[in-house]
Amino acid sequence: MAQPHSDAEGSPIIAAEARAAQVSSDEHPFGRPGRRFDRRSPFMIGLAGAAGVAVTYAGIQALLAAGQVLLLIVVALFLAIGMEPAVSWLVRPWFPRWAAVTTVFLVGIGLFAGFLAAAIPPLVTQGGALVHNAPDYVNHLARRYPFVKSLDERFHLHDHLQQSLGTDSSHLVSGALDAGRMVFGIISGIVIVAVLTAYFMANFPQIRSSIYRLFPHDRRPRAILIGDEIFAKVGGYILGNLLISAITAGLTFIWLLIFGVPYPLLLAVLVALLDLIPVIGSTVAGVIVALVALTVSLPVTIATIVFFIVLRLLEDYLLVPRIIGRTVQVPAMVTVVSVLLGGALLGIIGALLAIPVAAACLLILRETLLPSLDRH
């Protein structure tokens, strides 16, 4: 290159090029490799340590930046795993997998859309009425029940509600904009989860195969058995939990209609959402419904409390064993701890996914780590 050479290149470069022509051979056209770097040298150790810290820091920053997106991906993956038992049940020689996936997905979207179409108008109406009439309910309860009156006198509940509802127009506009952004975020999140769930459902066999190929050949059969058991636990828990939540919401709606408790649909939907949260969800829902039932009468409130106690017993000892069965076997202590940790880390979604994740971790520990520790 750059022939002919001139004195401007410098004699060291010209001498090195002459030496390069001598060391080149047919066996080693680019010369023999030089001495390898000493990986134990202080420079290489420091370089490797600095690179490890930099890569770890960059990975943590990437996870934090993509936290919301990763959360949506995890939710979509869990939904796809939850729908996989229904898809596998539909697949037949004359009914291919793509048709089963399409059927399950369209049925799920249809049920969700039908629920929204039927529930949103009364939910909006009842929710607006509840907010508007909240100060009157506080006055009504204060006149009827002395302990509510003492709470109102101590914490000024009526004044705080009046102040919150009587804000000026600038605050109302700001609140409307915030609500619009929140609704847009919820809708966009639902759309993203729906699209990702469809992709995961359609490609679940390929995803499953790719995961199992990460294991060594001699351990792959056992990994398949354990992995399929985990998928079955997650899927059974998600479908069973949704069904149990729908049953409790329906029973609550019927009860509230019979006793004339206001806002029955709004409270039933709230019960359905809170009942998805293990351990504490149904208890919180019962407390909220009982407080609203106070506006009717004290006997109705007591009856509502008894109803929720019976409903909790019915759920724990009849619905859960028959619907979820022995699919998810998690000790009570592990359930409480996992729900608390999941809620602290990922909020409501973390609490919802805590039990199947805990069941999967217990299965892995029982089948892999504990036998190895027992042998040594």
Rank of each mutant, 00 (worst) to 15 (best):
S24C: 03
G180C: 07
W94E: 12
A268S: 14
A176R: 15
T252I: 02
V55P: 09
I244C: 11
I81T: 14
L362F: 08
M201P: 08
V296R: 05
I226N: 07
L298T: 05
G46C: 09
E27Q: 04
H156T: 01
P96F: 05
R322N: 14
S282Q: 07
S209R: 14
I348K: 10
M201V: 03
L273Q: 08
L70W: 13
P33R: 09
G82P: 11
V334Q: 10
L340E: 05
L267G: 06
V334A: 15
M333C: 02
V296P: 03
T304E: 08
P29G: 00
L196S: 10
Y212R: 07
E17Y: 04
A18C: 00
L77Y: 15
V69H: 12
L266I: 03
L294N: 01
N133M: 02
P278Y: 08
L116V: 14
L225W: 12
I277Y: 09
D374W: 02
F215H: 07
G286T: 07
V234L: 07
P42M: 02
A80C: 09
G325R: 14
D275F: 04
K149T: 00
W98Q: 10
L141P: 02
V284T: 12
R35M: 11
L161N: 03
A20L: 12
V234N: 05
K149W: 03
Q22C: 00
G34C: 04
M333T: 15
I288M: 08
R375D: 11
V131F: 13
R219W: 12
S338M: 08
V336W: 07
E229F: 02
E153K: 06
H171F: 10
L157R: 03
L79H: 10
A129E: 15
Y237Q: 06
G189L: 09
G185C: 01
L71E: 15
G127M: 09
I355R: 04
G185A: 13
G114N: 05
F215I: 03
V289E: 06
R39I: 06
I187R: 04
